[in-house]
Design a protein around this nucleic acid. Sequence first.
DNA 1: ATGAGTGCAAAGGCTTTGCATTAGG
DNA 2: CCTAATGCAAAGCCTTTGCACTCAT
Lengths: 149, 149
Amino acid sequence: MRALDDDIHTTAALRMSSAGGQRYTSSRRSIVEVLAHSDHPLTLPQILALDPTLAQSSAYRNLAELIAAGVVHRIVVADEHGHFELAEDLTGHHHHLICLSCGSVTDFVVPAKAEATIDRALNSIAEERHFEVEHHRLDLVGRCQTCLT
Amino acid sequence: MRALDDDIHTTAALRMSSAGGQRYTSSRRSIVEVLAHSDHPLTLPQILALDPTLAQSSAYRNLAELIAAGVVHRIVVADEHGHFELAEDLTGHHHHLICLSCGSVTDFVVPAKAEATIDRALNSIAEERHFEVEHHRLDLVGRCQTCLT
DNA sequence: ATGAGTGCAAAGGCTTTGCATTAGG
DNA sequence: CCTAATGCAAAGCCTTTGCACTCAT
């Protein structure tokens, strides 16, 4: 389901050097490591909490480079912090459960068949509107199990 | 497809007074009017441009009240301005084409049949994850016709 | 040695808030 | 009258940037 950690770092390093001769430093590796070990997107404060040696501004800068290299993806849930996760081609296509109450974001996968239906519908819309699709975004917004109890 | 303008204002006024005795002032009416006449979500600067008599801070405050009353919905596309639109029960369920290049947001509707498939898939996920769904969010992210040429 | 990377502190940009004034019921 | 609403300016919050220092090649 998910590539081995080594593969992820190898791929990340490769993409970084391809995308403008960026080095895959230990800070960057650490960020990728933290993201790879989480089963849901993380905010910057969460990343820093998981690796307190990281400096905030450098983390933001490194995330920007990782995003530019296609290693990391940033999602915007509401207006608080952005959430960062590894690019989908490293982790697989998935969607998000977004809790309105605690702001948590969790991953989920929809059955291939439903995903295919969605893709078909979206592609025909895109074609008729002359819109070039980069990706789609399907999220459930509501209240998570923890917040319901 | 969309309720008559008068109905929208009547509904809006009603929801405002129900939601904590808020008055439906001319500024608020004007915001709703502007949103009702747009076929896509608007940012605050866009709203102000369409009605220059509105003051920024009051507009934000009024939008917050309108959102609390369930008249307006705010969507977050990226990290620039938020986008405001009338609540879906006033305009009908729809989705968004989000252009990465110019940041524009356009509405689209997916065929009822596909929408039903999506709902079914999402509901079963929600049930199995004990997640209480408030709404779902399905957007296409890419490049719009204008930006492609 | 040379350019990328780092970290601190300061600046930016969108939104919210404090406060005194105005207006609607 | 009395409470809500308004508008200006100031503050907040997340993120980005300037700059001097460090590190790897």
